[in-house]
Nucleic acid binder design. Structure first.
Length: 581
RNA sequence: GCGCCUGUAGCUCAGUUGGAUAGAGCACCCGCCUUCUAAGCGGGCGGUCACUGGUUCGAGUCCAGUCAGGCGCGCCA
């Protein structure tokens, strides 16, 4: 049980005793340390309902509170009840956490399966900076959910079938340089795609040829299928390289093409069940008529009033769309993987698509907790959305290379004794970590303008700051002469810096479940910064190896627990820690 | 036309779901390495939370409206 849960239990008992009926109220971490460690506004909320004096009610509640050796409580301001955790209680909590491999994190996801749908790049096109958010946030959510006990399936729903293949096929047949493809396939594919794109724009006949190539592919033309397979193969190899660099992993790569043979039957079923019907030659899902138009994702307001806003699941030419594929994917994930939750880490512009998708799935009888984990857009220098089609965006590989180069430069400058392979390995850990942390430390809904210095910063509130604190901890243990058993150490919280460390240790398990309530990994990022800040202050104020027993063992134990939480927390964000830097 | 997102320090951003005197980093100024890694620590400067009303003990947070920027709304994904 976390300290917060403990306080809530005791508060609930006191409320019941005070009011004569069962009642619960939330306890939160205090906003300001001057007000103690935890606080509750229960008295003010309840006094309002009962029209009594909040401070008097708070006093009554405190009179009924059994806090034992855990904390003291007092009243402040308009009727806050502030809890001050006793140092001995913090020390006991630290001792518990040291023995707990889960570091106090409750297994809130046990017994439930979640599919995380993220990254999902289109093949045959390189990933650019715009792809970074889904990839990094999705991977972090997978790691966090696993740590909380969920069964997690990370699925890369790659775009391996869309209409772009018409252009790619035409380009492959007419413009491809086999030698260049052999040497480095991704840039060559990009070149071909870009050239065909320009060609099709200028020449309607070329566009027509592209469309024909697509029709042939979808009809099962053997030549086109062969090219298609080769194209996917080389693209996947390129993607795998980037994912390896990013330390991002998938359990499955079931792209759009995987669902091809289910689409026709799905459309028939939707028609048979009356969920979809023909309109202008296309098969569409319309509003079911049970809701007010403003609440219905299949209605939209135009100049002349409310009108239909259907989802098309089969085009007039017989082709299928990504809504069709997404519906088939939901069915597969529920039937084959027994998904309780599906989280789609996809940009906010697709919000309407997901509202319609989830609504259609529900009408189809597919139930589950489906969430669109939306994120804001990465904008170009002109504050406009990055154009996925132009291909002249900053490529993801370039960002990662630059990040590692910058880290290498700082290592050469600050730690000249690190050389060769070790220095290169550290540069990779630090550089990639910085990029990931820049993304994860910010609210996912915020739009931002891509800027090298912002994404690659290595000073201040960054991954290197956190990594540096773990390096300082490792350095202490490297200097240790004898083996150290933290679980045997008596915890003594002597200085204010030590109490503050313990306070933050206790909060790790309270914080992690909250992250998934609203999919906000930045809560973890901010927590880790606070913990690292507390550690650096402790490091300056409290000598560890030079202090006398029993303080020395206690401080070593605090270092070990801090290191474990920092390493675990960074690991949950997909960021590794070097031994030294 | 309607809907969604955003607007907080010079810059980049947080803000625990309505709490107490709104916080970090960068930049700038002052101090700290013969002591466990100075990628660090301590201190300072910096605010009409876009604007106007409303709800209440209390609003950056909720409601209404206005302004500014971005995105979306039938055969792309």
């Amino acid at each position: 049980m976390t300290l917060l849960q403990d306080l809530e239990c005791r508060l609930a008992a006191a409320l019941a005793a005070t009011l004569g009926e069962p009642a619960t109220a939330a306890v939160t971490a205090a906003a300001d340390l001057r007000f103690g460690d935890y606080q509750t506004n229960a008295a003010m909320v309840l006094a309002k309902q009962r029209k009594t004096n909040p401070r008097a009610l708070a006093q009554e509640i405190i009179d009924h509170l059994e806090l034992g050796g855990l904390a003291t409580a007092d009243i402040a301001g308009p009727g806050f009840i502030n809890f001050h955790i006793l140092p001995a209680a913090y020390a006991a909590r630290v001792a518990e956490l040291i023995r707990d491999p889960q570091l106090g994190v409750p297994p809130v996801g046990a017994g439930r399966t979640v599919i995380v749908d993220f990254s999902a790049p289109n093949v045959a096109k390189p990933m650019h900076v715009g792809h970074i958010r889904s990839t990094i946030i999705g991977d972090a959510l997978c790691r966090i959910a696993r740590f909380l006990g969920f069964t997690v399936i990370a699925d890369n729903h790659i775009g391996d079938w869309g209409t772009q293949f018409g252009m790619i096929l035409h380009g492959w047949k007419t413009l491809l340089d086999p030698a260049a493809l052999d040497a480095d396939p991704i840039p060559e594919l990009l070149r071909v795609y870009r050239d065909v794109n320009a060609l099709a724009k200028a020449d309607p006949a070329a566009l027509e040829t592209c469309k024909n190539e697509l029709v042939k592919l979808q009809a099962g033309d053997p030549d086109n299928l062969t090219i298609w397979r080769q194209c996917i193969e080389v693209s996947k190899r390129g993607l795998q390289k980037i994912y390896a660099t990013l330390d991002v992993h998938f359990d499955h790569w079931l792209g759009e093409s995987y669902y091809n043979d289910r689409l026709a039957g799905l459309v028939d079923e939707f028609v048979a069940k009356g969920i979809a019907r023909e309109s202008n030659g296309a098969i569409c899902i319309f509003a079911d008529g049970t809701r007010k138009p403003e609440d219905d994702p299949f209605m939209v307001h135009k100049e002349d009033g409310w009108t239909d806003n259907p989802t098309i699941i089969r085009k007039a030419d017989g082709g299928f769309l990504y809504a069709t594929t997404d519906l088939a994917t939901i069915q597969f994930r529920i039937d084959e993987w027994h998904a309780d939750h599906i989280w789609y880490v996809v940009g906010v512009p697709q919000q309407l698509h997901f509202r319609q998708l989830f609504d259609a799935a529900a009408r189809w009888g597919k139930t589950g907790d489906f969430q669109h984990v939306a994120f804001g857009s990465i904008l170009g220098e002109d504050r406009k959305l990055m154009k996925t089609r132009s291909g002249d965006n900053v490529q993801l590989t370039d960002v990662l290379t630059e990040a590692v180069d910058r880290a290498a430069k700082i290592i050469a400058e600050k730690s000249p004794d690190l050389q060769g392979a070790e220095a290169a390995e550290i540069a990779a850990i630090v550089g990639i970590g910085a990029v990931k942390f820049a993304e994860l430390s910010q609210n996912r809904l915020t739009d931002y303008v891509f800027a090298w210095d912002r994404m690659l910063a290595l000073q201040g509130d960054t991954a290197p700051y956190l990594q540096y604190s773990t390096v300082r901890i490792r350095s202490i243990f490297r200097k240790l002469d004898a083996p150290f058993d933290a679980s045997a150490a008596a915890i003594i919280l002597h200085d204010a810096a030590e109490v503050h460390l313990a306070r933050l240790h206790a909060r790790f398990g309270e914080l992690l479940p909250a992250i998934l309530e609203d999919f906000r990994p930045n809560l973890l990022a901010n927590y880790l910064l606070e913990l690292a800040r507390a550690f650096h202050s402790f490091f300056e104020a409290c000598p560890v190896l030079k202090s006398d027993e029993p303080l020395r063992s206690s401080r070593l134990a605090l270092c070990e627990l801090t290191g474990r939480i920092l390493n675990t927390g960074l690991g949950l964000l997909g960021i590794r820690c070097p031994e030294r830097m």
